[in-house]
């Protein structure tokens, strides 16, 4: 190793070097008076400071994880609101999904399938025809939604359908129904023995409301984060979608005169609320 090489190496944090490189550097510094004068103390101090590091107190990692897990619901927090009145919110949301997916949805809709039906599905492990296909990231579901062969809901063609295509989008009610099915389904053809896996969250019902979490992506009840200053009644919420890209990526696509769009930062992405006037 030459003096010039030592000089260049000493410009970088010493931690970035391999132990062999460090040995070579130290050897050179030990033999070269100029380098010893220039870098001897720098090198030695690094070693001394590394050596002086203390072990963290026992159990620190566990205590941190307790804090982290306790803080999980707080991860959903309000962003500055986008309160937009734009055209065809549901369509736009679907466009956003088609174009910018992967998407995880936990759609909610009043007046959807009866609780009995839902519970029956859960208990029997039946896969209903789900409208959620291609664009939904399979990793977010418990089994690949591509196994669903329904033509309802979202287009399999992903972004292709985005240009003014209806994408098989149905009325909000039926969309939510499909999403709900997708959320609890995902068992068709999979090796799951139960339709409700460990990370599935069946939030439950409240009156006519049913909420479901798709796999592990979302573990909080969105109702706890309703923009109450604008939304007085949960029944105003047409649907809730979870998308992984920041709102600026799709907000311009949400054009709707009939509904307002609100965006919340959520676990691993963003929750898009469409709220009827």
């Amino acid at each position: 190793m030459t003096c010039e090489e030592v000089k260049r190496s000493m410009e970088l944090p010493l931690e970035w070097h391999t132990s062999d490189e460090l040995r070579e550097m130290w050897r050179h510094i030990g033999l070269c008076e100029d380098c010893s004068r220039a870098f001897g103390w720098q090198f030695q101090l690094w070693w001394l400071m590394q050596d002086a590091m203390e072990e963290p107190p026992p159990g620190l990692a566990e205590r941190i994880m307790i804090d982290v897990k306790a803080a999980q619901p707080d991860k959903v927090r309000s962003l500055p609101w986008w309160r937009r009145r734009k055209a065809l919110a549901a369509l736009a949301a679907a466009l956003a999904i088609a174009v910018f997916s992967p998407v995880v949805m936990r759609a909610v809709q009043s007046g959807m399938a009866s609780e009995q039906n839902v519970q029956q599905n859960v208990l029997q492990g039946q896969t209903q025809d789900s409208g959620v296909t291609g664009p939904v990231a399979s990793s977010f579901l418990l089994s690949s939604p591509a196994e669903d062969t329904s033509d309802g809901g979202f287009s399999e063609d992903g972004g292709k359908g985005a240009e003014g295509t209806v994408l098989g989008l149905q009325q909000p009610g039926s969309f939510a129904q499909e999403s709900e099915n997708a959320a609890i389904a995902g068992n068709g053809g999979s090796d799951r023995t139960s339709p409700v896996a460990e990370n599935d969250l069946f939030v439950g019902t409240q009156g006519a409301w049913r909420t479901y979490a798709a796999a592990k992506h979302m573990l909080v009840d969105w109702r706890a984060f309703l923009p109450t200053e604008f939304v007085k009644d949960p029944s105003q919420v047409t649907l809730v979608l979870y998308v992984t890209l920041p709102p600026e990526n799709y907000i311009e696509h949400v054009e709707n005169d009939a509904a307002d769009c609100y965006v919340l930062e959520a676990v691993g992405g963003y929750a898009l609320y469409l709220v009827q006037d």
């Binding site: 982290v68 999980q72 990370n199």
Partner: peptide, 18 residues
């Protein structure tokens, strides 16, 4: 972690806690 696996965060804690 961003995909929802909060437990994965522990690996980062163990890696950087010292």
């Amino acid at each position: 972690v961003l995909d929802g696996d909060a437990n994965a965060f522990e690996a980062l804690v163990l890696r950087y806690q010292k």
